[in-house]
Design a protein around this nucleic acid. Structure first.
Lengths: 192, 192
DNA sequence: ATTTGTCTTGAATGATCGTTCCAGACTCGC
DNA sequence: GCGAGTCTGGAACGATCATTCAAGACAAAT
């Protein structure tokens, strides 16, 4: 067999993901991807397919990362802390005055899922899994007494999801730390 | 003076607005705008300037409509009803199986405000005005007893804004009536 | 009726879009 | 050393992008 690839497929995918995340799908050109990955055009096409397939692979990679992150939060933290971490992990790049990039999945939800069924189903599933994570944390919190017995897991999770998505809109469009912290505190206080 | 315009400037602007709203900025081409308005390319350029200026004018027109709508809600409805109406007015086009278009301002917030300072400031101001509207309604509701005395207007308004923005993400990406209604009910129940 | 000045029209601009082709570089099994 | 087979690099493809040009159409003023 002849000649292995000259680049790390996963690493290049991640660099493309960063660019798609920052600029969005339509505003990212193949030239941008060539530039940010350092890999030749034809090699990108040979490896990942066309632009949409490339984007989809990046989106699924992002989604896998999100899934692993939630699993780790679930292991590592108490229920309320785990919920809080979900919000806070999007604040990491906010201080860089330019504002945060928000959540790649949520950005994609607004840009593409209205016109692309495949993306819509990926987005919907991701949202459902986050909602299920919240519900599981609420259940656990009720069991150990850290969350009020009056909160119904499904209702609480739905409310948290809405607050999280709104929070993510604000992270990208109006990254004011006071505002964002307030939203997180409010969302969690509702559970107590 | 010679020859007035052959088309209604506001009406054509509204048609362009509908297209920008549905597809977003990057995914809308000047050809799309020519098609949906029925007005010749060069006439569009002569009247509105380039694509970005055209978009900005559409966005400001949308924002004006939003402002008038809030003012009318404030006049017409009791505080809680007025708040509920803000959510419900985005559900009008959800039943058309294709899913709703969400809020033009919020869609734009995610697509463009991270990279365009002028848009960012328009978006931020619109969000602040909505937040202020919520705060005013809460204050009024506390005065007439329909909203709990424990709710601080600024905190309640911030929470409502987050829920509204999350709601709007879902309207466009996962337009499930049960889910959406639940979010609205929860958001308002929090005030009581 | 002719001039004046704006609006409309359809074609054309160069740039950039996503995508593909092809010749050369390279590693393996023989 | 020698094909076999995959990957790379750069140029090229037609399509579409936003934008502009030049000429004709029209209404008011003279």
């Amino acid at each position: 067999m002849p000649w292995e690839k000259q680049f790390d497929k996963a690493e290049v995918l991640d660099r493309a993901l960063q660019t798609f995340w920052t600029r969005g799908y339509e505003a990212t050109s193949m030239q941008d991807l060539v530039d940010c990955t350092g890999v030749n055009r034809a090699s990108l096409y040979a490896t990942y397919g066309d632009k949409r397939a490339f984007f989809l692979e990046a989106l699924r990679a992002y989604d896998d990362g999100r899934r692993k992150m939630l699993a780790e939060f679930e292991k590592r933290y108490q229920p309320c802390e785990a919920i809080r971490k979900v919000f806070l992990c999007f604040l990491a790049d906010v201080p860089n005055q330019t504002g945060g990039r928000g959540c790649f999945m949520t950005n994609t939800a607004l840009e593409l899922s209205a016109h692309d069924a495949e993306i819509r189903s990926i987005v919907a599933r991701a949202q459902e899994e986050v909602e299920a994570f919240f519900a599981a944390m609420i259940k656990k919190g009720k069991a150990d007494g850290s969350i009020s017995a009056h909160v119904k897991p499904s209702d609480g999770a739905r409310g948290l999801l809405a607050s999280l998505l709104g929070f993510l809109v604000l992270v990208r469009s109006r990254p004011n730390p006071t505002l964002l912290d307030g939203i997180v505190d409010d969302a969690i206080r509702r559970l107590k």
